[in-house]
Each structure stands twice: as structure tokens, then as C-alpha cells.
Write a protein that binds this DNA or RNA. Structure first.
Lengths: 345, 345
DNA sequence: TAGAGCCTGGACAACGTTGTCACGGGCGGG
DNA sequence: CCCGCCCGTGACAACGTTGTCCAGGCTCTA
């Protein structure tokens, strides 16, 4: 009966370990570890022998084992809504850069705006023992993270606040931004101003709606129910909402769009309409300046959101034991033409 | 002398382990493992006791240790050029979805078009023992991955081919796409056609240039050196290149733009010019249809690139021992107006 | 030249999990 | 009624690394 190979054939495809390197170099295990980690206490000659063995075998340290031993994984997790959404690209990249500066790798996952999936992802990342989490909440209840945070997972929420727990949050000034955007329309003579936004269970959507209402109240304009559309932002629905507001005996003369997907659809509707209607959108987007007219927007800096959040996270990992904080970043109104159109009719 | 705590204070923030759960439930370690993993052979009563202990302690399995024992990490790495680039968003998301379907998590890193950084990232991921890698090459030499691939890391290259090693590659038909785009301009009567692209050391850029040359040759048009601009795609340079081609006694009447960043800059230049110049761009981009004229593009499906690559990767992980293959996905010409302008002058 | 101290290197345990195996008790069949 | 089998359970080793500690040989000084 032939001897069965002891090493299971396909663990890491039978990778060499420090033990193998040590055997080949004729030194002890720990000496290899020292060389690999650049620790002092190894003579030049020994080091050379070890290096040669490493080269020859194609050894690469198994960071999984290292992690197990050291207790830190040097990795963080980012849970966002959709990697494919241009808004999250710069945010994601910014988080990555900060992580890189701290020698950490980044796990990335999309919740697809589904609270269950967000939880599943976040907990899977915790099981991997990421050192920290940056979460763009999809759900409104994050108590499931309580044991994790207590156990030391640094956690920062971005773009939307956490629900039910006390944690760091980095937000844009959605209320103030929307208020300023709508006030801008008012300043240009509009009174019948429509608002098309996302489901109000999403915090940013609710805040922007609130900003709209505040601005209208500031201007002493009572808001007609038909001027407001909340709900899914699939193009067909936005299109229908816009068309309804723009028809009838007293149509709106300006629209405030609650996010970039809405803005784009509204631009399409207006292009077909022929009649000039003022438009201000929340979120900047590429090429907004190239359209005719250029689209006036309330811009938030998604890269800065990510950088701020990641900075906070690593400060916490570096031992800062400050109380959880809520940071609100300012928005910026960029005028390009569409928001400065006078009311028609 | 007080007893010093045995448990180092801040490993995983002193998380409970299976051992702790076992002690609390009054069962053996392995029984906890069985419950956690849903293995059979545990009575309902025992299971209940274990579950209670898990809840009470807030236990979560340490997948790092699990990985060490099992040899598979259920994670894959994606090395791309820039997460913030809209082209990579859908690609990244597609890879993530496939990974998710296979129960794997996704590491994500940007090489910033720097070969050293690509290598550093890829090797860091290998050290974490990712099961597989999806790489969008920044460099032209990937022999550094040879030992890793031999050791069993499934590797698929996307968007650009690997250098120096035999591995799976998923590409767009850059040559054919560019050729078709330029031929489209020729068909609309243009003969003096400019090409503005990226550095030819980037494979896609070189292929698209080749496609341009093939199309010109097909049409029997000799290419003037001044019609071609290759190099960094920072806006200022593209702008200068475009302005040069468009001036002089025999300016180009059409421009083929080698990627979406170039296209956008060219659109800006043309908008300022006032004179109609035909334009076809490689890569589609959002809102291309809303510009006046709409921008005609050669579109590639970045999501499909990612999906195809990830599918291949997991097929390999599932044991398929097929030879490395080169897959080329078709591109699609989308006419929107800018490519159908007749030559001016 | 002898003793003290330093410097290099290795043996060993531990990290938290899973695979292997053995043990004991209950039950069914002969 | 007894034997054997199966089922539930737990002890133990192993995964690959790092931290601790000790041994042995060297150098430097008195």
C-alpha cells in the first residue's frame, strides 16, 4: 500500500512555509521569521542563506497565520450602497488611500440599499476580524453592530447616520445644502418650485426634503402637495413625477432634484419639453457644465467624506479614545445656468 | 504581587472564543464548532445551550483562524487602476456580484497606473492568501506572479493582457472597435482624421491606435504625423493636442478620442471652437446622449468584462483545469450625432 | 586567563479554529 | 439477555506564524 502524502494536496497549493525555508537554509524557524520581518539579531551570512532559500522556494509569508498570532489584520471594510454609482467611486478611493497610508488593505462590498445585505456584509467583515468598518448605512438599525464595536471594531458611518447606536458619523450638510439650493431658485423669482427625491426612509433624502421645506417656509411660500414627489428614483417614476408637476393650470417653474440620478432624468424630460424650466440638483456630476444650459448643483465632496471618515477610523485605531462625534461637511452651490433661469409664464 | 491578566488586553478587544462559549455552555470545544457550522450530530438540547451561550457572550467565529485551518479564504482580490474612474465602477461591481454568488468577499485596490504599486498590491493580496486575483494590469511584466499562480492562486487579467506569463485574459476588442469608429468617420466623408490617445505602453491605447491606423489604411489615406497625439491624458495636454490639430492650413475635420477622459476634454475644446468638427470617442459615458450634438462612441461593456473575468476565475477555483485562454469581447458603435457631422470646409 | 556580558540562534508555546479519532452509553437484534 | 453498533460528545493535534526564553559562543575587561 503506497504511503499517502501527509500534506493535503491542495491547501494553499502546497506552498512552502517558514519551516521549509528553515530546513533548506539549515537554520531555525524563528531565524527565518526574523529575516522575513527585518528584525535585528541575524548575521549577514545567515540572512543571505535564508534569503536564498526564500527565493529558491518562492516563499511568501502567510498573513492569515500572522494575523491570527498578532491580533490585528491590517485590513478595513467598506460597506457602501453601490460601487458602480459614480458618487461612491471617489469616496471609495479616498478611503483606500488613507488605508494604504496606514498599511491596511480594503475589503469592499455593496449593500444594494438592502438593510439585510448590509448587515450580512458588515458581520462577514467582522468575522474576518477587520480592524475597522466604514459603513454607508442602508438600514436604519445598527444595533447588530453593538457587540462588535464593544469588542474593538472601530466603526465610522458615512453619508447617513447610524440607527440605534452611538458611533462616529460623517455627513454632508444635506439640509443646509438643499435649503440653499431652493433659496437660490426663490432668489431668481420662482415661487412654484417642485421637489423630486428619494424615499424619505433614506436619511439624506429626508434631510434634503426638509431643506426644501425650510427654504419654502423662509420665503413664506405654502407648498402644494402636488409639488413634491418622493419614492423610488427609477427613471420612469421620476419622469412621470416631473411631467405631472409641469402640467396642469399652475405648473411649477423650477425643480429641485434630490440626487444626481433624479437630476439626470429631469434634464432629459426638460430637454424634450422645450419650455425653459429652472433646475437645481443635489450632487454634482461630470459634464454638468457641458450641457446647455449648464446644470446648477449643490455639490458635496464625496472624496472628502471618505477621507474624513477613514481618518477618524484610523485615529481611533491608533488609540484615540474620544467620544463618538458627528461631523457635518459643508456643501457648495455651483451656478452654471439652469438654476438662474427666470420663471416662465 | 497581583496576578497579571493572562489574556493580552487588546487582541481582538478580548473577544470570546469557542473555548469561552464551550465553558459557559458546559460542553466541549468541538461541540461548539459543530453548532456554529451547522454540522449534524448535536442534540436539540445541547444546541440550545450552546446557542444561548453564543448570544450571551456575543461570540462571532474568527474566520482568520478558520482560514488558517481550512486553507481557503473565500476572498478574492481586485487590482484596478482607479476605483474613482467611472469605467471601473461597473466592472468592480460585477466582480463583486460574482464573488458574492460564490460566498466570497472582495479585496479592492487601485494601482494608480503604477506598475510597482500594482505588484505591491497583488503580492500583499497573495500574502493574505486570497483564493484568486482579478488584475487590470498597470505594468507590462507579471512574471512576479509566477510562483503565486503555480502555488494555486487563480488569476485572470482584464482589460489589458498580462506580460511575460501565460494566464487568462479578458479584453475588449480595442483594435476592432477603434477601426470601426474611424471607419465610421471615413464613411461620413472625412479624410483628415486626428487621433488623441494615451501612452502606447498601455495596451488598450496601443491597440486603439493600431485600429485607427488600420482603418486609415483600409481607406487608403496616408496618416500625417501631426494628426496623432499620444501621451498623458491630463486635460491640458489633450487640449493643446486638439488645438494644434485643428489649426494650420489643413486642419483635421474629425477627431477620434482614445478614451473617455480624452473625449470629454475634446468636447470642451470643440464647444469653444464654434466650428463643427466630427468626434467619435472610445468608451461610452453617462450623458453622452444629452450633449448637443450627442456624442457618438465605441462602447465597451465594463460590467460584462468584470463578470466574464470573475466567472472564469471561479470556474478555475472550482477545479476546472483548462488551459489559459484569451477572451475578446465585442464593442458597439453608438451613433448620436457627433460622429455623423460632415467635414467642414 | 578567567569571568561577565552580549549577541546570535533555536526550542517551544500560543493564537482560534477544524479534522480525526476514541470513548461511553443506549438501543436493537439475535 | 447479551453483544455489537451507532450516535453524541470531547480530547487532541494541526494549520503557519510570532513572542518568550534560554543556551552557547564570542568578546572585552580586569
Amino acid at each position: 500500500m503506497p504511503e499517502i502524502a501527509r500534506r493535503p494536496e491542495n491547501r494553499y497549493g502546497n506552498r512552502p512555509t517558514m519551516k521549509d525555508v528553515a530546513a533548506r537554509a539549515g537554520v531555525g524557524l524563528k531565524t527565518v521569521s526574523r529575516v522575513v520581518n527585518g528584525e535585528p539579531g541575524v548575521t549577514a551570512d545567515t540572512e543571505r542563506r535564508v534569503q536564498e532559500a526564500i527565493e529558491a522556494l518562492g516563499f511568501r509569508r502567510n498573513d492569515s497565520a500572522r494575523v491570527l498570532r498578532k491580533g490585528r489584520t491590517a485590513s478595513i471594510g467598506l460597506v457602501l450602497e453601490d460601487l458602480a454609482d459614480p458618487f461612491y467611486g471617489p469616496l471609495s478611493r479616498a478611503v483606500e488611500e488613507v488605508a494604504r497610508a496606514h498599511g491596511a488593505l480594503l475589503f469592499n462590498g455593496s449593500s444594494a440599499e438592502d438593510p439585510d445585505r448590509e448587515q450580512e456584509l458588515a458581520l462577514a467583515l467582522c468575522a474576518r476580524r477587520v480592524d475597522g468598518l466604514v459603513i454607508i448605512p442602508a438600514g436604519g438599525d445598527h444595533r447588530y453592530l453593538e457587540p462588535e464595536i464593544r469588542a474593538g471594531v472601530a466603526t465610522v458611518f458615512v453619508d447617513r447616520p447610524a440607527g440605534g447606536i452611538d458611533a462616529d458619523v460623517v455627513l454632508s450638510d444635506n439640509h443646509g445644502g438643499a435649503r440653499a439650493g431652493v433659496a437660490h431658485l426663490v432668489a431668481h423669482g420662482h415661487r412654484r418650485i417642485g421637489f423630486i427625491g428619494d424615499m424619505p426612509r433614506i436619511h439624506t433624502a429626508a434631510e434634503r426634503l426638509r431643506g426644501y421645506r425650510t427654504a419654502m417656509e423662509d420665503a413664506g411660500i405654502p407648498v402644494e402637495p402636488s409639488w413634491t414627489s418622493l419614492g423610488a428614483t427609477v427613471p420612469e417614476r421620476v419622469r412621470r413625477a416631473a411631467e405631472e408637476m409641469l402640467s396642469g393650470p399652475a405648473p411649477v417653474t423650477a425643480i429641485f432634484a434630490g440626487n444626481n440620478r433624479v437630476t439626470v432624468t429631469v434634464v432629459r424630460v426638460l430637454a424634450e419639453l422645450g419650455r425653459p424650466v429652472a433646475l437645481v440638483g443635489f450632487d454634482d456630476f461630470e459634464l454638468a457644465d457641458l450641457l446647455r444650459p449648464g446644470i446648477t448643483v449643490v455639490a458635496q465632496d464625496s472624496g472628502r467624506l471618505g477621507r474624513t471618515a477613514a481618518d477618524r477610523l484610523f485615529r481611533r485605531l491608533d488609540g484615540a479614545l474620544v467620544a463618538p462625534e458627528r461631523v457635518e461637511l459643508p456643501t457648495r452651490l455651483i451656478t452654471r445656468g439652469s438654476g438662474e433661469l427666470p420663471p416662465a409664464g
